[in-house]
Design a protein around this nucleic acid. Structure first.
Lengths: 338, 338
DNA sequence: AGCTTTTCATAAAACGTTTTACGGGAGGCT
DNA sequence: AGCCTCCCGTAAAACGTTTTATGAAAAGCT
């Protein structure tokens, strides 16, 4: 909190007895600067604690080493991990990463998506709040965009997602094999494509097991109520939750009702979280490969930013299905990839 | 992916038949522009999808509506929630927020801290990786900085933290009251001030209960090994884990050894996570008020950015102590604030 | 020695905005 | 009618950098 006068490249130049251009050349490691001058400039830079102003720098150079990532909600560890991984990858490639979260709100997402353009990023990675992304991205957004996880209604973008149907089918088949005769599949809403794919996948592999779908909605209160009603009035032999929030509330409700898996009913879910390995019995889950998704998204965006103009492409990654105690008739434990 | 020629304020100006200055005035809602022109400019802006270039804008106007936040690791939901809360607050005050994570690495933290200066933010909120922050912030960093959670070695900064000692004392007193005669307190390292404060707090309120400190380090492997040894060879009547990672591994190790709380030993910990309410019995925890910390940090930074020059100030927030089944001799349940 | 090439530092222009300072015209006043 | 304001739009300067073009000195060649 001492000196006020801002130190610019001119200050450094004067102090080192050279021109601003030379300072710039030193800082950007341009060739053909005499070693002696390099040394002199460097030491003045260090002494003054000078740091280049990115605003001016980017303005003049039109640099494109900036990418943006938009996620629905940073307090969700899944998205936090995603961003974290991306940040490392971007940094390795010399890119800065602009992180914004949409607070799970479609309106805010739209606003952020618009606002982020003012930074002139070279590309965007977006995990949309829902499937209606294209309604929110003015076509004037002239930059590569990679969409992750949630399927957009219209396939205008590169997409990185997981094989929802196959993974759900694997769980369904497993439950059927274990001899459960009836299963309720619970998820927020079938209008969300991820959920729909999972339900359809589960339905396709139920074998002799009777399957019924329960849409619980998005609000805690409603979810809790519907699950409570289902568990008390028409309890199936197995319960398969299709998303994290539904899984969480389902597990709470079961515990509150004194029901435990797999004795009272089997329990499996999508979206593995830490606690699912910790509770006893541990819970059978489908684990999404977050780091892989981030890596794939970055690679695809890199290609696009590099000028690649192939047709838009959808990549489906495999989830791992972790079979644990909550669905096993007897003891034992196994793990397979689907 | 159609037209390339970048649209600047000049393009808009020409197309609307006015000067660039007028466009700027319209976009920044300056007074004294004829209503008719406002309308005309607005419609051209919409038509062309023009968005102001922040680089040029900030460069010229020297705007100070940008703040930075540096956290150790975004994949930790605690920090994710922190950032998420901050983002909302900043946005409300018309600030943009630059988010960077240090990947839990002191070197990277140092680098990010340096790099972030190039954006010329008006202020910084930092959750340091450890206590040696001041060694990493060149005094030339002429901007307000608010440090959160981890105590810096030297009190050069505003600080928002929690009452570690009192909260730990509350747990300690509770365990003692419940009649446990011995308790092991496990935490990463006493050289981290948070851990030290917690240990000292616990020690101050143990009453007749015998307390011993176990430093487990920072690496999963070592933590697991030390806890395993302690639990098998000199198991106390109670275990109090002082940080999240220790708590997690302790719980895993207990489960693996077939020990359950509170029957085999009581279990309590710092840093509440979701699963601690879900397992049975639920775990007694100290919950840090993340949102409040974020709010307090933003308020303090706002004051500083507004020019406030009071002496640096330390704010201690209260944690809530959630007493649950894992430490209760009998049944029952209660919750008190410390 | 005279010429060409190479090396290396600089002056000046440019990037896209915002701001400052100016000026033209309409209206009000005596 | 002459003068003074006020209103509103613009030209031009400025922000801190990078880049391009220029030129002076040093080095290489015959």
């Amino acid at each position: 909190m001492k000196r006020r006068p801002p130190v610019s490249i001119k200050t450094v130049a004067e102090r080192a007895g050279v021109s601003p251009a030379t300072v710039s050349n030193v800082l950007n490691a341009k060739p053909s600067v005499a070693p002696e001058l390099i040394e002199r400039v460097r030491s003045v830079v260090a002494e003054l604690g000078y740091v280049t102003d990115s605003n001016a720098s980017r303005l003049r150079s039109g640099k494109h080493s900036l990418a943006g990532v938009v996620v629905p909600d940073l307090s969700n560890p899944m998205f936090g991990t995603f961003v974290s991984t991306l940040e490392t990858l971007a940094r390795e490639d010399g890119f800065d990463l602009l992180v914004v979260s949409a607070a799970n709100d479609v309106e805010q997402e739209k606003e952020r998506l618009h606002a982020i353009r003012s930074w002139r990023p070279a590309g965007l990675i977006v995990i949309p709040c829902d499937g209606a992304l294209s309604h929110r991205t003015p076509s004037s957004m002239h930059m590569p965009i990679v969409v992750v996880d949630r399927l957009p209604d219209e396939p205008d973008f590169d997409l990185i997602a997981v094989n929802n149907a196959q993974s759900a089918a694997a769980i369904s088949a497993h439950l059927s094999e274990q001899g459960y005769r009836s299963c309720t599949v619970a998820g927020s809403m079938l209008s969300i494509s991820n959920i729909r794919e999972r339900w359809e996948g589960a339905a396709s592999a139920a074998g002799g097991m009777a399957l019924s779908m329960l849409e619980v909605g998005l609000e805690t209160k409603g979810i809790r109520q519907r699950l409570h009603e289902m568990l008390t009035q028409r309890r199936p032999e197995a319960l398969f939750a299709l998303d994290h929030i539904t899984a969480l509330i389902a597990y709470q409700t079961m515990t509150d009702l004194g029901l435990s898996a797999p004795g009272d009913l089997a329990f499996a879910c999508f979206d593995e979280a830490e606690w699912m390995r910790l509770v006893r019995p541990a819970i059978t889950t489908v684990r999404q490969p977050i780091e892989e998704m981030a890596t794939a998204a970055w690679q695809q965006l890199s290609r696009r930013m590099g000028g690649n103009a192939d047709p838009v492409r959808t990549l489906r990654l495999a989830c791992s299905v972790e079979v644990r105690g909550s669905t096993l008739r007897e003891g034992g434990r196994s793990s397979t990839a689907a």
